[in-house]
Structure formats: C-alpha cells, structure tokens
Design a protein around this nucleic acid. Sequence first.
RNA 1: GGCCCGUUGGUCAAGCGGUCAAGACGGCGGCCUCUCACGCCGCAAACGGGAGUUCGAUUCUCCCACGGGUCACCA
Length: 483
Amino acid sequence: MASNTVRTRFAPSPTGYMHVGNLRTALYAYLKAKSQGGTFILRIEDTDQGRLVEGAVDVIYDTLRQTGLLWDEGPDVGGPVGPYVQSERMGMFRQYAEQLVEQGKAYYCFCTAERLEQLHADQKAAGEAVGHYDGHCRDLPAEEVRRLLDAGTPYVIRQKMPREGVTGFDDAVYGHIEVNNAELEDQILIKTDGMPTYNFANVVDDHLMGITHVIRGSEYLSSTPKYNLLYDSFGWEKPVYIHCPPVMKDAQNKLSKRNGDASYQDLMAKGYLSAAVLNYILLLGWSPKGEEEIFSLEEMVKIFDESGISKSPAIFDPLKLRALNAAYIRRLSPEEFRKMADPWIDQAVHVEIDRDLLCANLQPRCEVLGEIPEQLDFFDAPLPFGPEMYANKKQKTTPDTARQALSALLPVLENLPDWNKDAIFEACKAKAEEMEVKNGWLLYPLGIALSGKQRTPGGGTDLAAMMGREETLTRLRAALAAL
RNA sequence: GGCCCGUUGGUCAAGCGGUCAAGACGGCGGCCUCUCACGCCGCAAACGGGAGUUCGAUUCUCCCACGGGUCACCA
C-alpha cells in the first residue's frame, strides 16, 4: 500500500516572484497529493545560476505557507530523498548518463559549437528546418570515442532517439498523444561543463524522489515523449502526467511578470485575501462537479479531481477575482474583518471614531481591502464642498431643502440624551414623521454635511454615531453656516 | 515552417448523440433602503466555418480558419 502512495512535487525555479499560473500548478499538485492521502514535495530548481535572484527562495516559501500549501518534504524540512535543492544534486547525474551510453541509449558527441553553427547554416541554406542535430557522432567507433576522450576533447552526452516509429503516452488531461520519433532530436543530457540539462535532471530527480504524478504546464506536452523514452531506457516506471493549460492575460498572451501582470505578491499588496486568490486560481481551468464555487483549502482537498481540469487556455479575469474576494470579505466574522481592516483604516484615519461601527458599514462595501483608505478620507478633517452637492433628484433634495433639513436636525441632535446609532436614527426618523417627509429627504443632507461626499460607508446617522456628538455637531453647524 | 494541443455567451465554464444548451462574474432592469453598497427578483447574451456518420449532432470523423505550445550545451 505504501508503495502506491501518491507523491507529487512542485518544482519552481527561484525567479523572485510567484505568478498566478505557477501558484495554480502548486495548488493542483498539492491537491492531487492530499486528496489521495499522498505526499507533496517541494524541490527548488536553482541550476540556472545566471538567473539567481536574492531572496527568491523565500518568496516561494512565503507564498506556499501563506496559502497553506504546506509541503511534506523539501529543502527546509528535509525528507528521505534529499537534497531538495537541485544545485546540490549536480554530482549524481553523470553516472546515469554514462549508464545509458553503455546500454547504447546515449552517446558521446564531440561536435564543436562551430560545427553546429555551420550545420544550422547549411540546413537553412538548403531550405530545411533548422534545429535538429544531424547525428554526426551517433555512431562513432568505440576506439575513436576512446581516443577523443583520452585526448581530453570536450564533449556532451546525447540521448539516442529512435529514428522510426512513434512514441505515445496518455495524459490525464489531454488524453492520448503521439509523436513521430523522427521529430525527436538527440537531445543533450550532459553539457560540456559536466552538468545535466534541465530535461535530464528532471527525469532523474523525479524518479529518485519517487514522483508518481507529474503536474506541470502544457508547454511540456511535446517534450514528454522524450522524458518517457528516458524512463524506458532506464527501465523506470513512468509517472502519470497531468498537464495544465496556460493561464492567459488575454486571448493571445500568457500571464507573465514581463508584462507587469499580477503576481501573488502584488495581489496581497492590493488587499486581496489569500484564500480568495487561491479559490479563484482553483477555478481557473478547473471546474467542480456541483454549483458551489467557494471552497476552503480543506474542502478543495475533498473535491479535487484532475478530470475537472480543462484543456483550453483560461484568461485571468480580475473582475471575477474581485467578486470572489468580495464574497470572502462578506463571509468574514466582524472580528476577523476588523482585524484585517484595521491596518488599512490606520492609513486614512487618525482621529478617534467608533471603528466597530465603521467596520460594520465597511464590510459590505469593499471588495478589496486596498480600497478602504479612499473611502475614509473625510474622517480626519471635513472635505470642502459646495451647496450643489446636496441636489439629488431621487431624494428630492436641493441646497434649499438641505438647509431646512439640517436646521430641523440640529436641535434634535443637540438635545439627544444618548449618542448611539439606534438612538440617533430613531430620533431622526421621528422628526421625519413629524415633518411628514421621507427619511431620505431629511437624512441624505446629513451624510453630506458630515462627510462632504455623496457616497459614504454608512448613512448620515451612521456617520454621526461613528464621529461622536461633538464632531457631528461641529460639522453640522459649519455646514449649515455655509448654506 | 514541421509536429502537438485547443475552439460553448464579453470572461470562467457545465455538457460527454435526443437538453427550452447549467451555473458564476460582468452588463441591464426592478425590489429593499438615511447615500453608496449588501441582499433578493428578473432580463439579454454562446456551441468558429464546411463536409460527412446517424432517424437525430454542441457532443463522433475529416477538411478549413483562428488561437496556443514546442522545435537550445535555458529552466
């Protein structure tokens, strides 16, 4: 049973940020493992020294931790098949390549860069497709190979691809895929510097780490036959492949940092909720069986099934993300919301107000935490405004009616014994009934008088309750004087 | 260009030979209401094109168009 346990891995290269497509791959790999009671492994592919970015590994750790995609084995927590950082595994590949050479499945190639360039130039001149290595060293006599090796000639080790036939495999998402072996190049396994190429290291690492399900982007679809030929050459059991369609910015372009597209970090900085982002990403290219679409990570684990993964590219829709984020915010308990909103409120409000009441009004009014400050710009100091702001046809108010309304309201508020939301509203409502006017006619001007804005997080009486008696009366009198 | 993959409303998508072709976001309209929101109700909106197979195609086959991917001593 233990030998059948699902093992998946997320193998990012530390580029300094985590884009949405990457995170989705991590999510699916995590869900696949967890839904089967399996193991989720983190492997850092840092062999591209030229692209090393300071702190990039921490971005990966932080993102995964924040989203709850905790790994069972990885660089920091260790595990039975380490090391989990690829640069620390570099020494173990040559022997595997040499084993292949002995079996006749790979060969030493001594072709120089110049010859390869010339080859490509010739192919181009002949109008042929450029690219494929011509197999010049494929069948070099053993003694010739020996001689060159002894002479210290630089070389690479190339995989000997079959020249005929087809290689096929079954992808869990895309179904059966076949390619003609003639399309396959004798790809390099070990580079001149003795290091393995990504493709080779990947296969060996995945096997050594016992990966049973490889979950990755569809860009690897066409190179998968090469991987499988390698597995077959070694006599290793092939993993199940689950290729995912790309996440697009629009119909033509993939989401990418290059285009300045949103990364997980960017979204967090804007005030999106981690759980909402993860939930949105889940739905980007995967669909649940039922109608429900809001899921916690625990629920995702229960319902995830790779058969729900779509084959076609999905365009990242910021609007849908927003809506989902808003739904998450609304589901927060008042305490949770207060905790998350406080830092954002601090950015705009430096005076004492009733924050619990504010939050009660704010919670249904923000879709992203980042838009909180702009809604609260009138608390620290009154915003200047002209009398025309009072005009509203729906409320049937004008600067003139506003003066009447505010004049009527002032004594009511001045003489109110208890200063709280309900007391204020009831008193105002009673006044409206007494005057035989609509609540809106009387109270719409109040909100404007207190804030200087037509749209505020809460009605006039709510703002009054938040600001307190003194500030309310001060602003009300000032507004009246200005009319 | 060769090869591989894809194509249902604006977007995410369900569908897996017979449906009035789900649902969500967005849009529009209404209700509620001390603003704006939330919430609730309703409306508009789709099978890329052409041949087949079949009693019957969104579903199966082929061709075309469009889109994406891939063809490195990068990962």
